[in-house]
Computed example of a mutant assay.
Amino acid sequence: MRNKKNILFATIALTLISGFTYVISQTKPTTEPKIIQDTVKNVKPAIIPLPDSVFTDKGLKLRPYKKNAHASYYADRFNGKRTANGSRFNNNNYTAAHKKLPFGTRVKVTNEANGKFVIVKITDRGPFVKTREIDLSKRAFMDITKHKGAGAMKVTIETIIE
């Protein structure tokens, strides 16, 4: 009996001294901080906008690269030849040549005249004409051209962010 009184007295003393709350049946203290309403700030969640250069189009993250770029297509004589990245060129694949973009970069090329676009992969260097920005494979070029007899067109180039 005396032992129970000592435990009860110790529990009350600890509660008053340290601020801990005890339940007689428990042996571990529970420390739950009290939230004072005056100190709680109304903080809105931070919304971090994407940079203006990044937007999405049908699930793709695109970064504009160049507007009013001059595009042409590979001649048939390059079919089967090695490209700068080591693969064999095929005019029926969706590939392209660019002077600066890294190999393997996927690019969305949009014809400015009719709005049609195609997604190609950079596999080669070129074109080696100063006024041209990109050389498309013949299939990619014919998919977006307005006139099948054309050899060049104005396009918008956007890189796809992965």
Score class of each variant (00 low, 15 high):
R106A: 01
P102S: 14
G104F: 09
R88V: 12
K116H: 10
T83N: 06
K100H: 02
F89R: 03
F103Q: 11
A84I: 03
N93H: 13
K99E: 01
K99R: 14
N93F: 07
R82G: 00
F117H: 14
N92A: 07
G86R: 09
T83I: 01
R82V: 05
N85I: 09
V107R: 06
Y94S: 06
S87Y: 00
A97M: 02
K108M: 14
G86L: 07
A97Y: 00
A97R: 02
N93I: 04
T95V: 15
R82K: 15
K100P: 01
A84V: 07
A113I: 10
T110K: 13
A97E: 04
T105W: 08
T83S: 03
A96V: 03
T83K: 05
G115M: 13
N91Q: 14
A96S: 07
T110M: 10
F117D: 14
A96N: 04
N91V: 00
N85P: 08
P102N: 11
K108H: 08
K108R: 15
V109H: 09
R106G: 01
N92M: 05
G104N: 13
E112M: 15
H98M: 05
T83V: 04
N93R: 13
L101S: 05
P102K: 14
E112F: 01
K99F: 03
T95Y: 02
L101D: 08
N93A: 01
Y94K: 14
L101T: 07
T105N: 10
T110H: 09
N90D: 15
T83F: 02
S87P: 00
K116V: 09
R88E: 05
R82E: 11
N85G: 01
R106T: 11
N111T: 07
G115H: 14
F117L: 06
V109N: 08
K116N: 14
N114V: 03
K108T: 09
R88T: 12
R82N: 09
K108C: 07
R88N: 05
F89G: 05
T105C: 06
V109K: 10
R82M: 07
H98R: 02
T110W: 08
N93T: 00
N92Y: 02
N90V: 00
N92S: 12
A113P: 00
A84L: 07
N91E: 08
R106Q: 13
G104R: 13
H98D: 08
F117N: 15
F89L: 14
S87K: 14
G86V: 10
K99D: 01
N92E: 11
N111E: 12
R88W: 01
K99Y: 00
K116M: 09
K99M: 00
T110V: 13
F117R: 08
K100S: 14
F103L: 11
N93C: 00
T110L: 11
T105Y: 07
V109W: 11
E112L: 15
S87L: 06
T105E: 14
P102A: 11
T83D: 04
F89C: 05
A97G: 02
F89K: 00
N85K: 04
Y94E: 10
V109R: 11
S87Q: 15
N92W: 01
K116F: 06
N114D: 09
N114R: 09
L101R: 09
K116S: 11
A96R: 03
